[in-house]
Simulated assay, not measured.
Amino acid sequence: MALEVNQIVGGYSQIPVLHKVSFTVKPGELVGLIGLNGAGKSTTINHVIGLLRPFSGSITLNGIKIDQDPAEYKRQIAYVPEAPVLYNELTLREHLELTMTAYGLAPEQTWPRAHQLLKTFRLDNKLDWFPADFSKGMKQKVMICCAFMTNAKLLIVDEPFYGLDPLAVHDLLNLIEERKQAGTAVLMSTHVLDTAQKYCDRFVLLANGRVRAHGTLDELRAEADQPNESLDDIYLRLARNDDDE
């Protein structure tokens, strides 16, 4: 088991946003975290990466809880946030070097992988550029390169398709598939449900801070006795029913 989220209650200050959220992400699996704005996706991710501590419940990554060994827990995670976070005073090259240092990666072994990623996302001639020189999409590609050059056992990608051109989206999905095949667990939050339906192995559907359903697409269809329903149809039906309760 890679990631196990068990009965998490959490939020900001003392106000609970998440209500007994539970799910798993196994090695070699892509799980889609699906929900409308305000459903609790970002709050869930912030708990998993350690920015928030749960009021109750537990989060375990390969047998390690963050309060047991914070450094080792976080070293297992690579995160691509929805909004790129770059240091204005550092070049692209320096961002990559900083990432290598943070994860304890040997430069001579990591640079070949980094150069391949840079070439894939057409950034290989921009190593000396600063964030001010990049478009939003290019900044997102920098974050992707930094995350995917690590040996992280859990990759978290939060709304990764915003700002990316169609070719970059295709390249990112190929990278996710490669990492899955190598045994990496991947948690992806997205609003692009047709893409999620095509690529994700399982789904966790959130609404109002609660898990409304989880499982494969076939399992979600069987639960609703709707064998031809799309992921979009399933989520909208559950979200509307939740609002009516």
Score class of each variant (00 low, 15 high):
V31W: 02
S58Y: 00
K153S: 10
V192D: 08
V25W: 03
L127D: 01
P81M: 06
L92G: 10
C200G: 06
T60S: 07
M149V: 09
Y199T: 14
D171K: 02
L52R: 07
K26W: 06
G35W: 07
E97Q: 15
R53Q: 11
N6T: 15
N151D: 14
D201S: 03
L236A: 05
H95A: 12
A168C: 02
I34V: 15
P227I: 10
G215E: 06
G35E: 07
H214D: 03
K141M: 11
E108V: 12
R122F: 08
Q76H: 01
P54F: 05
P54L: 01
T150W: 08
Q14Y: 11
T91V: 13
P70N: 02
V48S: 00
D69G: 01
T150E: 08
Q197A: 14
Y73D: 02
W129V: 08
G10Q: 11
L33K: 02
Q14S: 15
F121R: 07
L164C: 04
R93Y: 14
E229Y: 12
E223K: 15
A39L: 12
I156D: 02
P27C: 10
H19G: 10
V142A: 07
T44Q: 01
E229L: 14
A83K: 13
L51T: 04
K141A: 09
G38F: 10
Y103H: 15
A2S: 11
Q197G: 09
G63T: 10
R113G: 05
L238H: 05
V85F: 06
E108G: 08
G35C: 06
I59M: 00
A147E: 06
L175F: 06
D244L: 14
L164R: 01
D67W: 12
T110V: 09
Q140C: 07
I66N: 01
H214A: 12
L52K: 03
Q181G: 01
G137N: 02
I64L: 07
N125A: 13
N174C: 04
D158F: 04
N88E: 15
T44W: 03
D194C: 05
L127T: 03
F121Y: 10
K119F: 00
L164K: 02
L30P: 00
L205K: 05
